[in-house]
């Protein structure tokens, strides 16, 4: 059986999640491998969510937030940018393939970008193969 990646998406309510909606309403095609969780802001994301997702078997984690400067709460994504950068470095130093975690800024009007990012990321994870390092069996 061919490998179908399981990808966790964590999207901010105001931009990326709305962007995903737009992708849907404009009938854009993108892979079904992404399961999206909506949060109110990218700064609400506890880094442990990402570690936990990998432990529970996610092959990749995609975080989406508003473009810097566009945060609904003015500065949330600016904090998130620093925090998630650290998460990325920690994952990398622990031995996880860096490509499995990605942060993208996608606005509510960027349905196209959302679909494009999901397509690209899914392909990348497909090439990386199943994530086994963190997964608890």
């Amino acid at each position: 059986m061919s490998f179908e990646p399981k990808i966790l998406g964590i999207a901010c309510n105001w931009c990326t999640y709305t962007g995903a909606d737009l992708a849907g309403t404009t009938r854009l095609q993108y892979p079904q491998n992404l399961r999206v969780v909506r949060v109110m802001c990218s700064s609400r994301i506890n880094p442990s969510f990402i570690f936990k997702a990998f432990q529970l078997g996610a092959d990749g984690v995609l975080v989406g937030g508003c473009h810097p400067g566009d945060c609904h709460y003015n500065t949330g994504n600016l904090y998130a940018r620093r925090r998630l950068a650290v998460t990325k470095k920690i994952l990398e130093f622990s031995g996880m393939e860096p490509g499995r975690f990605r942060v993208e800024w996608i606005s509510a009007s960027e349905g196209n970008k959302f679909a494009e990012v999901v397509r690209e990321f899914t392909e990348e994870i497909r090439n990386l193969g199943p994530q086994t390092k963190f997964k608890i069996s």
């Binding site: 600016l78 940018r81 620093r82 925090r83 990325k88």
Partner: peptide, 15 residues
Amino acid sequence: PALINFRVEDSDKIL
């Protein structure tokens, strides 16, 4: 502390 702070000019490159 660095993580309860930010600068607008922080680069996306860190991600």
